[in-house]
Amino acid sequence: MRKTSTATLKIISAALFLIALLVAVPLLINATGRSDLYYTLTSVALLSIISAGVWITFYIGRINIGQGAYALLGGYVSAILVTNYGMSFWLTLPLAGLFCAAASVLIGLPILRLRGVYFAMVTLVLTEVARLLALALPITNGASGIVSIPLPTGISLFGVTLVPDFATLANPRLAFYIVAVLLMALCFLGLYRLAHSRIGQLCQSLQQNEELASSIGVNIAYLRVIAYALSSFLGGVGGAMFASISQSIYPSSFTVADSVNFMLNCFLGGLGYVLGPMIGTFVLYFGWDLLFQTGEFQLLIFSTVLILLMLVLPNGLLSLALPRKRRV
């Protein structure tokens, strides 16, 4: 009985949160006239999707600092399909994700055998590989990147316009914001389901002790490749969205620093919580933005705050809000 009531409570609060994001935030932005916030919030939503991918790899006990590679890959796949082959952006979005997932299976098969810092270091190197590849391959147009990617076109089914053509909209920023928020909601809903499903529990067993899990009969090789593919899928989708919003992609769009940031987002939000990546991204991104006024001291203050946060809350921000949950 009690369990169902908490479940409905969760559903209601999630729905309220979504409504607040989709209705209240645009209203507020309209009232204050700060339409630049759309871009910031869209970025937070997309970055939290990409970080959610990193979170999945944490869930199987791997430290992933290579998410930037897949974000870059996804961005390029979408950009090339849209500009060279004239595909609809909405079709390239899942394709970019699937392409990244396929690539990650190939890459993951050897490197997922590594653990701990070895995996972390290889994935870090992977980001650098992606950048070098983007510079060296002819199709990616080298250092000048792919620019002036057309805005997403509309989708209509049986004459009914489901998604309007972004180029004709008065405020494409708002449209991008809504798409990003919906994607984020979808992503975290999926993440929540995953974490509380059978596979999620198996993943946790991997996180604790792989040998033990494997001795009980868990197919660890299969599970970790699946988890890594899911993680890369999210990275690819986020990267593709980013390329479309900025209408450009360069080899330096996602670098090692970004990969490290995705990892920091997860850490800061707390690795034990599904919403961790979202909170972490929000705090980090807004913190960075707020510090913009401090000019040259931006990085210094930002990193000092990060270090202090680590000293005070080594287990993430959410460990502050949900201290009891952790103990259960």
Binding site: M263, L264, L300, F302, S303, L306
Partner: peptide, 13 residues
Amino acid sequence: ESTMLLAAATAFF
């Protein structure tokens, strides 16, 4: 792994 975050923050610092 928390030390990794700390090390990364130290690098930024």
